[in-house]
Design a protein around this nucleic acid. Sequence first.
DNA 1: CCATAAGCGAGACGGTACGTCACGTCTTTGG
DNA 2: CCAAAGACGTGACGTACCGTCTCGCTTATGG
Lengths: 190, 190, 190, 190
Amino acid sequence: MRTETARVGRPRSEQARSAVLHAVDDLLVEVGYAAMTMKGIAERAGVGRQTVYRWWSTKAEILFEASVIDARQELAVPVTGDALHDTTAYVDALIAFLSRSDAGAAYRALLGEAQHDRAVAELLAGTDVLGDSARAVLAAGRGDEGPSADVLDRATAALVGPVLYWVLSGRDANRLDARRIAGASLRELD
Amino acid sequence: MRTETARVGRPRSEQARSAVLHAVDDLLVEVGYAAMTMKGIAERAGVGRQTVYRWWSTKAEILFEASVIDARQELAVPVTGDALHDTTAYVDALIAFLSRSDAGAAYRALLGEAQHDRAVAELLAGTDVLGDSARAVLAAGRGDEGPSADVLDRATAALVGPVLYWVLSGRDANRLDARRIAGASLRELD
Amino acid sequence: MRTETARVGRPRSEQARSAVLHAVDDLLVEVGYAAMTMKGIAERAGVGRQTVYRWWSTKAEILFEASVIDARQELAVPVTGDALHDTTAYVDALIAFLSRSDAGAAYRALLGEAQHDRAVAELLAGTDVLGDSARAVLAAGRGDEGPSADVLDRATAALVGPVLYWVLSGRDANRLDARRIAGASLRELD
Amino acid sequence: MRTETARVGRPRSEQARSAVLHAVDDLLVEVGYAAMTMKGIAERAGVGRQTVYRWWSTKAEILFEASVIDARQELAVPVTGDALHDTTAYVDALIAFLSRSDAGAAYRALLGEAQHDRAVAELLAGTDVLGDSARAVLAAGRGDEGPSADVLDRATAALVGPVLYWVLSGRDANRLDARRIAGASLRELD
DNA sequence: CCATAAGCGAGACGGTACGTCACGTCTTTGG
DNA sequence: CCAAAGACGTGACGTACCGTCTCGCTTATGG
């Protein structure tokens, strides 16, 4: 994605940009990640193929841009001060995100692609959607002095890991016990 | 994959079968999953393209067959009777498998593909390499009366999940504390 | 085609032979020459593929064997002594053969194939179905002393050529005037 | 073949077009019609396979386009006013075309293919290279009032047929007597 | 009367062309 | 200079058929 502001010539069409992002969202739901192609995205968006390539390199990049904002919103939970309650709410949100949300489907597709494409792996590593949101909840519950980074990472893994394993391996998300996972994670903070 | 025993006609060539499986193993390491093609596999194996398609539908199927045996071996740990020790050994094996082993790279590629190909998802669901091995270790540590399936699944998620999250999100596997993860998982069994 | 008599071992199956010849006849009508394959012939005949290849090299060879007898029969006309009448009858038979008969369709297919396959060309040259029949009619009309080979060939070309051109170039065979062609050919004999 | 003028988008590459036509010409001579493949044509022309398929459906179509202009030139003879002389010159040209010229080899291959492919038959029927040139010569020799279409067709068959039969059945073209064939054909015009 | 030999149907084998699709680039017209 | 349209060279897709090669079986001859 190019970011520097163009100074001369015709400016970038905001209409084309959002048409592409919406097309990717739609196509992910309609045909799935594997069947989604740069050609198909351009046609669906009513945009030239070159215009897509001008601003994004791969379908993963577009999908990332199209879904990361939604992802962050869906994983943000209000802070009440009750750590166990907040963390449980977060796990519920995480379960909903990974197993039911469209943005979550996009995230799973990207996480999958990252396993066989280094560029996508780096794209995801740059913005750790899951980890950042989890750390935020855990840190908020601890009040003033935050736990050390190591401890926080460990608790994050204990919080996100079980849900991720459950969903990625295709199990029924309803059988997860959010409160129990939240509790086990919080115990790692001590 | 066809399994029924053929009675008439030329029998299946065991040489061709193993050449394909080895080719897939090699190519995964050399070019990666994304760049691996059915055409490339056939050529590398010195085998006709039709022969590959005759016995496997997709590269994922071949890779699965080629790596599942190695995977099981690498994830099997000896039972000593000391539950914490055995479980910690398992977590170490799991970390090595997911982050360093070739079979583990194959598994990650397949798990990734499963996120955008239902057929691969079902293939992996049919043989839950990670879950089966984890459950075996946890159940062995409990002696006679095994824990309920639900409890065992929960502990399995607590055991496998953090490691999986850590590796899939590209973090340094050396920063994982195997003993701590094992302990947290065992606590779920009570 | 092999002809020498086998002395030992299982003798050639006459049933397989005729099944193949009939299959070729049928397939020519049903799917046409281009879509006729050795594989298809074997399957249609209920015969192993190797059995076909054991006795014939190409579909052209099979088709030739399957149709040459019919061709000769359809192009034989009774000799009455009236040269113009007999020759006209022959032209009528030739028109029917080339434009309506199944054996004629086989001949046209083979003649076509001969234009881009030397082996088929030699096969046809070995047994000049059209020329032989035409020369027989023309020679019969001349009584005792036959015309020279050159003259006979010229008259044959004048007899067969116009019909062949007409049919091969896809024109309506009904618009041909058999008597006139016969007359012109006979004039070449003087 | 598409002919309508494209208005937007990259225009058709004339270089690719002529590279394909030349490749077909060359390959026909080098490997023959049967061994000529769409793949081989594309590779020889240094052109993408899709580009070939975009403008032509079959190798016959390409060959037709590549050879019809040459064919017409080779079969055109100057009109002197002496009908027998002109017609004899035409027969000589026809003999040379069918038995020695590259364009003639292409024509024979196409005529052969037309016998087992209806599409090719229609392609040739649309532009009757042989008949058109023959009719032109015969009509020119008759002065003002042209002969009826039927009579002209009959004379054309008498002119082209014998030569065609001779060459297609693989006989030596040198043994044809052009003047005699011309004379017999002209006699059909009365 | 069994050993040897060859033909049989079936079907897998290594190849290769098929026609299609998507890739990422290039070259037009037009805003 | 951007955008659309669409042709370009490249190369994998999954299929079909090529001609060959095992298989187990059948059907002959001949010691």
